[in-house]
Structures are given as structure tokens and as C-alpha cells.
Write a protein that binds this DNA or RNA. Structure first.
Lengths: 218, 218
DNA sequence: ACCTGAACACCGTTCAAGT
DNA sequence: ACCTGAACACCGTTCAAGT
């Protein structure tokens, strides 16, 4: 089976190659597959071009350089991340706490389901100077979801008072840390971990704290 | 100022080059400097050899390949991490809770102070198959410190009952997440963050939880 | 408007030599 | 025992052409 020419039977009836199709899309897909299969070091512009069935120089018609391709991957990742968070937040129920927790569960679930995206988004593969426009903003959107949810919970008396941004940093740290540990295989000591169970435990601990219940509150 | 020859005035009176010195050490240092200055992509074996003042082939006398050099960096990182955690835990006082919190503060402080080490330790730069021996174990040691500290806190009635390993995953997620966000510059929106203050806030939130105080405990 | 082929400087790795 | 020089296959990027 030749690799470069096996593009025909695509899910939505793609053309016989990308010569007049969507080469940027094909290159992003190729990048994700190379990273997912053999790590970030396996992503080369030339290999991505090969997978897409074009010459080594063709990518430069659509991306200024390798960083620009990585930035496209990261940007797509942030879009998918915020979408996943919003979806899980809605699915988890209408009350502010379920919404808040759903955001966290969506975050971890996105990372586990899209490790290649996650690595590019947070891995400093992009050397970029100055930061690609829109990328910083895309990352900020996910954080804003957390801050807003915390504000809602505070107004409902479910989360304790305090700067919602500071509390959001703690929440972000918890779900981001679990995600990073999962994606990096740091939790594989006894086989592949049950990511959903871990996410439920971590978000619960985040909310309740590790402290033993004290006799008097306040 | 020539780069490769400026090795003389070292802190401890190094020799005039590494030809009969410690080339492995010099290569690890060069790797850290390249990563720290220009990102992981700037680390090439050839550039590291250049910095050490030896030929491009010389590193292969000491490291099987690029992964082996990265593994050495990671292993050193894990040694430094556990040392930093132990030190902060001791400095923070004798009671179990201070010890536990000190471990977390040490973790974040190590990451902020050694970002190049941290990236190699957790960044999946090493493609390694099978995992380099001793590396997995070195990572496990830091985690064991957390588990033991949680057990001590449980026995002192400070941390609530439950599987200490599961609680340690939550604690690890929190401090690892904050560390990763700091190292990746994700918290730089309003200038460089106050890492120590963030670490204090996150470890406090981890212990107390985000929940509003409830009228009845248990 | 989009793609190719050839070119250049660079990298990982190997190997026959050197001291 | 440790290092060098030359070599090979590969990569990022550019540029003159092609259709």
C-alpha cells in the first residue's frame, strides 16, 4: 500500500490528491499523525509534505515556516479545547457547580483524546518570537471559561469568596497538571490509567480540599 | 570572545578544555544552556559538541545517541527535584502539614529555577524505547515523597482518610500543573508572575479546597 | 495561483584513522 | 582510552522554473 497515494477513499469523498484540494488541512493532519505516532521529533515539514503527496517545497505556499504549521495545530487545539469544555459543562447539568466541574472534566478529556494537539499547545515546540497572533488569545479563552464559572459558583455561595482569577489559577493547575501527567505517560505505572476516574477524583479533591473535616467552619 | 575556548576561568579552576576533563558533564551543561536559551529545538548534538570544544563525533564516546544525552539531563533533573523537595520540606517546619506543603513548594520552585531540566524531564523529547533504566524510578521517587507525606498527615488527622496514592495524584497534579504553566510562560499575561506567591496560593487551595465553608462538617 | 527540482547549510550517526 | 575527519542520509528553507 503506497502511503502518499492512499488519499482517495476519504470519509467525505476527497479528491485524488491535494493538488487542487485543501493542502493546509492535509499538512495539519499529517503533522498530528506524525507527532501522535512517533513524537514531536518525527514531525518534519518534509515528512508532512510526503504524507500529503506533494513536494518538499509545497508547504511554503501555505505556511511561512515550520513554526507557522505548529501554530496552526495549536490554534486548532485551543478551538477544540474550548469546545470540549463547553460541551462537557453543558452535559453535566445546569447548576453552577456541575458546570464548573464539567469544564475541568472536558479539559482533561480533551488532553487525553488529543495528545498531539495538547503537546503542541503547551510544549514550547513553537519557538515563535514574537508570539503568533491569536494564539495567546485562544489560550486565554479557555481560562476565561474557568474564571466565569468560578464567579457563578461564588454568587451561588458554592465556592468561597476571593479573587476568582486566583482561584481559577488553582483550578487550571489541577486539571492542567493531571492532563500533562496523563499525556506524558507519567501515570502509566500500572498499565494505562482510567482517565475519567482520575479526572473525577482530581476535580472532587480540588473542590473539597485534602484537609480533614474540621469541627467548626469559618 | 571565542566561545569554545573560553573554558578556562571556571568556578573551580577547570582545565584548558575538556580533552582530558569531564566531557559528559560539559555536554550536559551545553545541552541545558542551549535549551534554556533557544528552546529544545536548539539542542543539537553538534552544537553541544561545539560548545564543549570537541568534534561532532566526540559525544558518541560517552552517549549512545541524542536520547542518551537527554536521558542524562532528565536523570539529573529528577535528582535535583527530589533534593529540592526534601530541602524545602525540612525548612518549612517539623509538623506533617508544613512538610507536605514544603514538598509542593519545592516542586514548583525547582521547575521555575530549572526550566530546561523540567522540560526534558516531562516534555517527551526523549523518544526512548524502551524507557531508559533508572529514569522511571527517579520520577517515582518524587511521587513517593508525596505519598509518604500524605500518610503522615493522615495519621496526624490533618488530611482526610482515603487512598494516599489517589490523594497524592491530586497533589501532584496541582503542583505539576502550576509548574508546567509557569515554565511554558502561560501565566505571563501581566508580566512575569510571582512564582512563590502562586505556589503558596495553589498549595493552600489544594489543602482547603475551593468549596465555600459548609455549616456542618462530615 | 499553486507546485516542482535543484541547491545550500545544517543535523544525527558511523567508521576508519589518528595519538 | 579518547578524539578527529570524512562520509551518508536527512532536514529547513530558498529560488528559479514550470503549468
Amino acid at each position: 500500500v503506497s502511503r502518499a497515494r492512499a488519499r482517495r477513499g476519504g470519509a467525505r469523498g476527497g479528491r485524488v490528491g491535494y493538488h487542487h484540494g485543501d493542502l493546509p488541512r492535509a499538512l495539519v493532519d499529517a503533522a498530528l499523525e506524525l507527532i501522535g505516532r512517533h513524537g514531536v521529533r518525527a514531525l518534519t515539514l518534509r515528512a508532512a509534505a510526503r504524507r500529503a503527496g506533494v513536494s518538499q517545497a509545497a508547504p511554503y505556499r501555505h505556511f511561512a515556516d515550520k513554526d507557522a504549521l505548529l501554530a496552526a495545530v495549536a490554534e486548532e487545539g485551543f478551538r477544540l479545547l474550548t469546545a470540549a469544555m463547553r460541551e462537557t459543562a453543558q452535559a453535566d447539568g445546569g447548576d453552577p457547580l456541575s458546570r464548573f466541574r464539567g469544564l475541568g472534566l472536558g479539559y482533561v478529556s480533551f488532553a487525553a483524546g488529543h495528545p498531539a494537539h495538547f503537546r503542541v499547545m503547551f510544549g514550547r515546540e513553537i519557538v515563535e518570537r514574537p508570539p503568533h497572533p491569536g494564539l495567546q488569545a485562544a489560550g486565554g479563552a479557555a481560562f476565561e471559561l474557568l474564571v466565569d464559572a468560578i464567579r457563578d459558583c461564588q454568587q451561588a455561595g458554592i465556592v468561597r469568596p476571593g479573587d476568582p482569577v486566583a482561584l481559577a489559577v488553582s483550578a487550571w493547575s489541577a486539571v492542567h497538571g493531571l492532563s500533562a501527567l496523563v499525556v506524558d505517560g507519567q501515570l502509566d505505572r500500572d498499565g494505562p490509567p482510567d482517565v475519567a476516574a482520575l479526572a473525577h477524583a482530581v476535580t472532587a479533591d480540588l473542590f473539597l480540599g485534602l484537609a480533614a473535616p474540621r469541627p467548626a467552619a469559618g
